[in-house]
Nucleic acid binder design. Structure first.
Length: 930
DNA sequence: GCAAGGTC
């Protein structure tokens, strides 16, 4: 650094925010700076003397407030009707200083004029680098020969700041250009889509330009839309959920020492037949034998990592039901008043140079947590533990922590008290020992089935004493000894149904955004708020988000539009791709111009395609407006064209319909009482019912449907026009459904290629709900009037014929499957293999092995004598088919003598090509096989 | 009037 003349040089220092300017000035001047006002009332100017590399300097330190400039279209393109929105992909853009930042600009200009050097103290991230160049532009415009340097610091502490000022470098142009690219892309695609969608809506629906609708903007943004996408996807998942029954065996034992509740180590089974067989064997031989009583094991529950912004928002939402936006507002006020540290930080680890104990010392006066803080500081207490490192560091700010003691200020609201308490208790928890417990797990065996019960004794609460937001329950179970036997107090076979996941709560949404890189810690809450403000989503009292009707149409429309051209505007990939490109620019692998050109070209193509297909969007909007204007919010389905009499309820007709996603189905008009439906091939573009009656299907007339398929969606060899029948006779429809799938959401979730069916009606219904006992609909299997509850069955008189000598090994988990004998009324004496491994639900009838007739697993209850077929669930069963057909190459079982065993087929659906654990019908949402 | 990113 060269000396300019003989005397001291004047150095203008600029920080990203007033607080940093003050801190840096304080550190460099050792607290001796003078303060004077600037043009902006928030941005003071601090003056002091300092020597940089031996050069005496008269230091002027001031600040901006984040970005000084905004990107905007040239005047001619600024009005909404001034141009075609497609022009916004080439329209000139420029940076300008908005009105509310003009006074800061003036300060910079005035101070730059009298300075020789400009030292940039912006935050050390890409945005900071970009702001640095905004400052440079303003200052250079009035003083072209300024000597410009950049200070790099990672924390506002003496050593870092002094080191930074003695090791000044050049600002990083590439970092700034990466942000320029991001800004330009965001502006162009956001403005073009928003103007297009909003104006389309206005023109088509003639919205009153003076009413409330005038302010309605149907915006699109690369952060707000993916955020909305998370909400909509979860909503769809819930809508598509079809409850499925499952069964579990529960056992309890009450003794003088207390109650132990044992859990079935298989978890639960989705197949009633196997559950009831295993249950009845337990009832038959109910003596429980204690197999294993390991010594109590020490368990720890660790305190959370130091608090960063996203965690603060998530926890305040969970603990106090505060919105992330309100949490940040309150945190900002606490920060401004000096009670907590800077609230916008990614960092979740403390620097080794932080004086952690001083912060605890401050809190010892507090009436609620003061005594805990005091104990933390006592070395003999052993409560102290250095905080864990969460692995994130934004190099600019420490984790959020208390900076000033307060037992509550008079102007604080309940929310201020809560957020401050959370910050303090979280900090105290971070520097505390984990909670400790002793856990014991007892394992018992009843008739070959394993059950376990756990007890937990809390040995030391440690951090949980102060962190009242978390708990760790203790439970006591009686003491058991290995080999001890007892008769359970209760032994029940209980049914339950799968439930859909809950709507996303605010903490879930923040996690989704964080994981997908949508927004930054400082902006996530803004995106969420925008969705609520724009009427795309609503939030209930439990902070759970639902899409509004308006929301439902936009992503759907966008999805339909974008699928055709492979851009999914509402999915998070777009942001991830942009983020990747920004990284490429910031390391110099791509130029800003290159990234802009490629990205904008693609986005413009997407936009033009969307415009061509605007009928799709209008159609979706029509549905929305019709719904909005309809006071009856129920899903009253408009009558469609009748195809046939419903062959399930026999009470209503089935009509051709198009759902809100644009997919076709033939559904019972008695919905939701009757859920019979046939989903039509996914690529169906148009469908209409003809007067042509199918000659082979019935009962009653089944009218044929005239289909028009999307050429691009069907395989070669199929015609786009097809006169088809949904009664079950139409092989072309079956093949198209097999290959292309249907528009059913639940079907769409399946693994591609795993939903074959030979019967369009059979596997394509909304929810079969067929009772597995009597094969009738209308009641659950557990309430079948033809059944005597399993526990009330008369006890079989036969002794247990289990034969543990004969085994096969399961190639799924490698365990020896035990050959056992059923005691149930329907299957008495019949042998089966079951895998004893927890989590492996393998089950196979012995007579299905080496038995190519295959009728053992297909529900042939008409046999009547001896070993009857199992009560298969009938889902895609392949009764009577030879097992020698399709067979997976990995399906090898060996008998106890090492001989290969053939003929095993899936217990769930009877297909010999796979085992039950690979059955396409299995429910994977809860990690279980069936 | 539109985006997302800073921050008082």
């Amino acid at each position: 650094m060269s000396r300019r003349g003989g005397g001291p040089v004047t150095v203008l220092n600029v920080a990203e925010k007033p607080s940093v300017a003050k801190s840096v000035a304080g550190i460099l001047s050792r607290g001796t700076f003078r303060t004077r006002e600037g043009r902006s009332r928030y941005n003071k100017i601090f003056e002091f003397d300092y020597a940089i590399n031996g050069q005496p300097c008269r230091m002027l330190m001031t600040s901006v407030i984040g970005h000084l400039m905004e990107l905007e279209f040239a005047d001619r393109y600024r009005k909404w009707h001034s141009c075609d929105p497609a022009d916004l992909y080439q329209a000139p853009v420029m940076k300008h200083v908005p009105e509310d930042k003009k006074d800061i600009k003036k300060t910079l200009e005035e101070e730059a004029r009298k300075s020789d050097w400009l030292v940039l103290w912006l935050d050390c991230d890409r945005e900071g680098e970009n702001i640095a160049f905004e400052v440079v532009d303003v200052c250079r415009a009035v003083k072209h020969n300024l000597f410009i340097r950049r200070a790099h610091f990672s924390a506002l502490i003496d050593r870092d700041i002094h080191e930074a000022v003695q090791n000044l470098r050049d600002p990083n142009q590439l970092f700034a250009e990466a942000v320029d690219a991001r800004q330009e892309i965001d502006l162009r695609i956001g403005a073009s889509f928003t103007r297009f969608q909003t104006m389309l809506l206005r023109d088509r629906f003639a919205i009153d330009s003076t009413g409330e609708e005038r302010s309605r903007v149907i915006s699109y943004g690369p952060c707000q839309f993916p955020t909305l996408g998370f909400i909509v996807e979860r909503y769809w998942e819930i809508q598509a959920h079809e409850p499925e029954e499952f069964w579990t065996i529960n056992c309890s034992h009450q003794s003088e020492e207390g109650l132990a509740t044992f859990n079935w180590m298989r978890g639960h089974l989705f197949d009633y037949a196997s559950a009831v067989i295993l249950y009845e064997m337990c009832v038959e031989e109910p003596t429980a034998t204690v197999m294993n009583v390991p010594h109590p094991r020490e368990r720890f529950k660790y305190p959370p990592y130091p608090l960063n912004t996203i965690e603060l928002e998530k926890r305040a939402s969970r603990y106090f039901r505060l919105s992330s936006e309100h949490t940040m507002k309150v945190a900002e006020e606490l920060y401004q008043a000096g009670f907590i540290s800077y609230p916008r930080t990614e960092t979740d680890s403390f620097s080794s140079r932080t004086d952690l104990r001083a912060m605890v010392e401050e809190q010892t006066r507090h009436p609620a947590w003061g005594s805990y803080a005091q104990r933390l500081l006592e070395p003999e207490g052993g409560l102290w533990r250095n905080p864990a490192n969460g692995g994130h560091d934004d190099k600019a700010h420490p984790p959020i922590h208390p900076t000033k003691f307060s037992s509550g200020e008079s102007n604080w609201s309940r929310d201020h008290l809560n957020v401050y308490e959370l910050v303090v208790r979280h900090y105290l928890a971070c520097v505390s020992q984990p909670a400790v417990a002793a856990e014991t797990t007892v394992e018992i065996d009843i008739a070959g089935e394993r059950f376990s019960a756990s007890g937990r004794a809390i040995l030391a609460k440690n951090y949980l004493e102060v962190y009242r937001f978390e708990s760790w329950g203790g439970s006591v179970i009686p003491v058991y000894e290995k080999g001890q036997q007892f008769i359970p107090t209760t032994l029940t076979l209980d049914a339950a149904v799968t439930r859909p996941p809950p709507l996303l709560c605010e903490a879930d949404l923040l996690s989704c955004m964080d994981k997908a890189g949508i927004g930054t810690d400082a902006t996530m809450h803004d995106h969420i708020k925008k969705l609520l403000d724009r009427g795309y989503a609503t939030k209930d009292a439990n902070t759970r988000f639902s899409p509004t009707n308006l929301t439902n149409i936009i992503p759907v429309a966008s999805q339909d539009l974008s699928l055709a051209i492979r851009y999914e505007l509402w999915k998070p990939n777009l942001r991830a791709l942009m983020e990747h490109d920004m990284n490429e620019v910031s390391v110099g692998r791509k130029t800003k111009a290159e990234v802009l050109e490629t990205c904008l070209q693609q986005m413009k193509a997407c936009f033009l395609d969307a415009r061509v297909k605007k009928s799709k969007l209008l159609e979706a909007m029509t549905i929305f407006f019709e719904r909005s204007n309809n006071t009856d919010e129920s899903e009253s389905q408009t009558a469609g064209e009748v195809v046939r009499r419903c062959n399930l309820c026999n009470e209503s007709d089935m009509a051709l319909r198009k759902n809100r996603d644009g997919n076709f189905m033939v559904g019972c008009m008695n919905y939701p009482q009757c859920r019979n439906a046939v989903w039509l091939p996914g690529p169906t573009l148009e469908a209409s019912v003809t007067t042509n009656v199918c000659q082979s299907c019935g009962p009653g007339p089944v009218y044929k449907i005239l289909f028009k398929f999307r050429q691009i969606g069907i395989p070669p060899g199929f015609d786009v026009n097809h006169l088809g029948c949904v009664g079950g006779c139409d092989d072309i429809l079956k093949q198209l459904i097999d290959i292309c799938g249907t528009g059913s959401r639940s079907q769409a979730r399946r693994t591609p290629g795993t939903a074959p069916s030979n019967n369009i009606q059979g596997s394509n219904t909304r929810q079969s709900n067929v009772c597995i006992h009597c094969q009738q609909r209308g009641h659950a299997s557990t309430n079948c009037p033809s059944r005597v509850p399993a526990s009330q069955n008369s006890r079989p008189t036969a002794t247990n014929p289990r034969n543990d000598e004969s085994t096969v090994s399961c190639n799924t988990c490698g365990s020896q499957c035990v050959l056992r004998t059923a005691n149930t009324e329907a299957n008495r004496g019949r042998q089966f293999f079951s895998c004893p491994t927890q989590g492996c639900s393998f089950f196979a009838w012995e007579d299905s092995i080496n038995n190519s007739s295959g009728n053992a697993t297909t529900g042939s209850n008409s046999g009547g004598s001896g070993r009857r077929g199992s009560r298969g669930r009938g889902r895609g069963g392949r009764g009577g088919q030879s097992s020698g057909g399709r067979r997976g190459s990995g399906t090898s079982f060996v008998s106890a003598t090492g001989e290969p065993v053939s003929g095993i087929r899936c217990f769930s659906c009877g297909d010999p090509s796979h085992f039950a654990n690979a059955c396409p019908n299995r429910n994977t949402s809860n990690g279980n096989y069936f």
